[in-house]
Each structure stands twice: as structure tokens, then as C-alpha cells.
């Protein structure tokens, strides 16, 4: 019974913060609410005694992804800009259709799989060693594929973020800020002189 209370508390908190993340107008609040939702999911993992997954979820999502979201919000647009488009709009319909398709494409294989109808084993602990061994043996191909994908994303981000250099300069990148910056055109005092 207490475990059920805990589950419904965490699930409720997760859902509420997820809904808040979607509906709130202030983007920073949205980011923080999504962080709360991530933390709620981590709590549910922990309640299912999946320690490793729970902590990893917290570390990666709250510690990195939420920060990234917030960072992006701050760096790209001001938090005080009011959105001009209403939440319920024409684009909304397309969004619902896409979300439904994605949900269907995930849920259909899940409900079709035989694993779902298997009764849970009494001992549900997933030790870290087992996860590691499984990742390194049975699921090595997906792991490598994900690694490759992330590397591609990383390189892509670096390419996008790289400063475009004029074609003639082939000097190596200098790390120092001072050396790198070109002197701004100076204000010429002599041009100001009034003819007397």
C-alpha cells in the first residue's frame, strides 16, 4: 500500500509538471517544470528498484538536459518575449497528428511483443554488472549505433558553432581571445577637425 501511494504521488507530480511544462508561457518555467518531470520519472525508476537507471536518469536529464534547455532558452531569446501565436492554433492540429503517430509507432510494437504478457519475476533488481554485460554483449550493435549518432550530432554542433573564417586566412586557430580579435576601426580624430 505505501508503495502505491508513493507511486501515485510521483506519477501525479510527473504528469502535473509535464503538463505545466507544455502550457506555461514563461519558457524558463517550462524548462524547470520539465526538469521536475524528469526528476519524477527518476523517482519512479527508483521505486521500481532500478537504482542505476534512476540515478542515470537524474544525472543525465536533470543534471545535463534540463540545464541545456534552460541555457538554450536564455541564449536564444529573451524570457520576457510574449509568444504571438496562441497555443491552440492551426499548427496544433499537425502536432497532434504527429504526436499520435509517434505514440502509435511506439505503442504498437510494445503491445504486440510477447514480453508484456509475461508475469514479472519475483526478484526485479537489475544490478549494474548485468546491465553492463548485456550492453556489451547482446545490445552491442544498438549501443554502437547510438554512440555513432551522438558523435555525428556532436560534430555537427561543432561545425555549426564554428566561426566562419575568411577564405584567405589559413592560420591555425589561436586560442587566446586577445590575439584572435581583429582591431576595430578606430575613430579618426583628424577627420573631425574644423577648418578655421
Amino acid at each position: 500500500m505505501p508503495s502505491e501511494i508513493a507511486f501515485f504521488t510521483f506519477a501525479g507530480l510527473t504528469l502535473i509538471s509535464a503538463i505545466a511544462a507544455m502550457t506555461m508561457r514563461n519558457l524558463v518555467y517550462c524548462g524547470l517544470c520539465s526538469a521536475a518531470a524528469f526528476a519524477g520519472i527518476a523517482a519512479i525508476y527508483l521505486q521500481l528498484s532500478a537504482e542505476f537507471v534512476g540515478f542515470a536518469q537524474f544525472l543525465v536529464y536533470v543534471g545535463a538536459i534540463a540545464i541545456l534547455i534552460v541555457f538554450t532558452v536564455l541564449l536564444t531569446r529573451g524570457t520576457d518575449i510574449k509568444p504571438t501565436v496562441a497555443i491552440v492554433s492551426r499548427g496544433w492540429i499537425a502536432g497532434v497528428v504527429i504526436a499520435g503517430l509517434v505514440f502509435a509507432s511506439i505503442s504498437v510494437p510494445v503491445f504486440m511483443s510477447a514480453t508484456l504478457w509475461r508475469t514479472a519475476p519475483p526478484e526485479v533488481a537489475a544490478p549494474v554488472e548485468m546491465i553492463g554485460l548485456e550492453l556489451m554483449t547482446r545490445y552491442i550493435l544498438p549501443l554502437e549505433a547510438i554512440g555513432l549518432l551522438l558523435t555525428v550530432a556532436l560534430i555537427g554542433a561543432v561545425v555549426i558553432a564554428m566561426r566562419e573564417k575568411p577564405a584567405e586566412s589559413i592560420e591555425p586557430e589561436v586560442t587566446d581571445l586577445e590575439e584572435n580579435s581583429t582591431p576595430a576601426p578606430r575613430f579618426d580624430v583628424s577627420s573631425l577637425e574644423v577648418k578655421s
Binding site: 524558463v28 524547470l32 526538469a35 527518476a42 537504482e51 542505476f52 540515478f55 542515470a56 537524474f58 544525472l59 536533470v62 543534471g63 545535463a64 534540463a66 540545464i67 534552460v70 536564455l74 524570457t79 544490478p127 549494474v128
Partner: peptide
């Protein structure tokens, strides 16, 4: 004595970044 104690440690430490952001914002 968590099975994944060191991960717990880093996960707990990760929340402080969010707190710093909240304070600043």
C-alpha cells in the same frame, strides 16, 4: 549502501547547477 552509490553522488551533485541557475534568473 547503494549498489550505484557513486552515481547517486554525482546525480545529487547535478541538482546544484539548476539551483544556481534558479538563483541567478
Amino acid at each position: 549502501d547503494f549498489n550505484a552509490g557513486i552515481l547517486f553522488f554525482f546525480a545529487a551533485g547535478a541538482a546544484s547547477e539548476l539551483a544556481v541557475f534558479m538563483a541567478g534568473w
